[in-house]
Design a protein around this nucleic acid. Structure first.
Lengths: 193, 193
DNA sequence: GTCTGATATGTGACTTGTCCTATATAGGAC
DNA sequence: GTCCTATATAGGACAAGTCACATATCAGAC
C-alpha cells in the first residue's frame, strides 16, 4: 500500500494529524497520489495498530481536539525499506485515452471538440502545477531539509514535463485533424462478420 | 466504469469471447488500461445482465466451448454516449514518484541506483511500446477501419511521447546527481520537535 | 438566534481491481 | 503414461479507493 508509505513519509518530517496530512497531500503529492480524507484516517488507524506510528491526543480549547500521529522506530525502518525497494513501474490507467482509442466512430467535429476540451483542461492543469511552489511556500511546510525539498521539486518537474509532452501531443493531434488528416470511416462502418 | 466501456468498444468492432478480449487488451490498450482476466469475465456477465450485450454459446470440437458476446443496440448507444462524455482528467497514481518525493533521506548512491534502475525499466518499456505495431499486425485484429486504426495509433503515440518525456527527465536527474548537484542533508537529519 | 465555514474525526456501503485457485479439453513433447 | 502449454471460463478472498453522510467545536457574519 503506497498511501501507507506516503503517510509514513510525511510523519518522518514531523508529527501530524489526519487533517494536516490531508492538506499536505493536496498541496504536494496530490498530482501523482491523490488521497481521500476518510482513507487517510483509516490508514492512520492501521499504522497505529501495526505499531508504525503512535497517537498523541491533543486537547485544544479554541478548536476540536486533534489526534497527532508520531512515527515510531519501526515506522522509520519500514519507510526506509520501502524507499529502497524496487517498485514495479506499472503504468496508471487513463480513461481519456480509452476514449481516444475507441473514438473512431465519432465525426471530425466531435473529435476536435473532445481534443480541444482536453487541451484546455491540460493547460489549466499545467498552470496549477506551475503555481504549486508559490502556493506551497505560503504554508508552514515542515520541510526545511534542502535535500528533501529538492526531491519534492523533482516530482513537480516530472509532472510538468510529462504534462507538457501530453499537451504537445494533443495540440499535434488537433492540428492534424484541422488539416483533414484523419482518415474517413469505411462506408459500411459497422462491421458484421 | 471504464473497463465496461472499453469492452463495449471492442465488441463494437465485432463479437468476442472473454478470452479474445483479454488478448486484445494485452495487445492494444494494455499500456493505459490493463485488464485482469477474471475481471473481464465478471464485467462481461454484468454487460449481459444489463442488456448491453448478449451471449452466444459456441460449441467447439477441438477446444473448450466459448461464450461469444455481441453488443446490443443499447450497448452501442451507451458506448457512443460515453465516448462523447467529458471525462474528468484525474491523473493516475504513481508509486515510483511517491518514492522520489520522499527519497531525501537516501544517499546519492541509493538515489542513483534507484533512478538508473528506473531508467532501464522505462527504456525497456519504450522498446515494448515501439514494437506494438509489429506485434499487433501479426494478429487477426478485427479493426479494418482506417479511422479506428488511426485512433489506435494516436494512443500509442501518446504513450511513446509521454514515456520519452519521462525518460528524459530521469536522465536529466541522473546527470544532475552525477554532477553532485543534489543538496546535502542537514546535519540533524532526523528532525525532532 | 441562526447560519455558514473552518477545524477535526470518523462510519458504512459500495465499486474496482488484484491474486490465487479451480475446472475442463486437447495437442504435442518426453 | 505424464507433463506442459494453449484454449476457455469462473469463483472467493482480499486490498484499495470512492462517495455520502454523521458528528462536534468554535468564530464570525447577518
Amino acid at each position: 500500500m503506497s498511501l501507507e508509505h506516503a503517510i509514513l513519509g510525511f510523519l518522518q518530517y514531523g508529527p501530524s494529524s489526519g487533517y494536516d496530512l490531508k492538506a499536505r497531500f493536496d498541496l504536494s503529492v496530490q498530482h501523482f497520489w491523490p488521497a481521500d480524507q476518510s482513507q487517510i484516517y483509516r490508514t492512520l488507524a492501521k499504522l497505529a495498530k501495526d505499531k508504525l506510528a503512535w497517537v498523541e491526543h491533543c486537547e485544544q480549547e479554541d478548536r476540536p481536539d486533534r489526534k497527532v500521529y508520531h512515527i515510531t522506530e519501526a515506522g522509520s525502518e519500514e519507510l526506509r525499506r520501502w524507499l529502497t525497494r524496487p517498485l514495479a513501474m506499472k503504468g496508471g490507467r487513463s480513461a481519456p485515452l480509452v476514449q481516444v482509442f475507441f473514438a473512431g466512430q465519432l465525426s471530425d467535429e466531435e473529435l476536435l471538440a473532445m481534443f480541444r476540451r482536453r487541451a484546455d483542461e491540460v493547460r489549466a492543469g499545467l498552470e496549477q502545477l506551475r503555481q504549486v511552489p508559490e502556493r506551497a511556500e505560503q504554508v508552514t511546510w515542515g520541510i526545511d531539509d534542502p535535500r528533501e525539498e529538492w526531491c519534492w521539486y523533482l516530482t513537480l518537474e516530472c509532472g510538468i514535463r510529462s504534462t507538457e509532452a501530453f499537451l504537445a501531443w494533443l495540440e499535434d493531434v488537433i492540428a492534424r485533424i484541422e488539416r483533414g488528416e484523419a482518415p474517413r470511416q469505411r462506408e459500411e462502418a459497422v462491421c458484421e462478420r
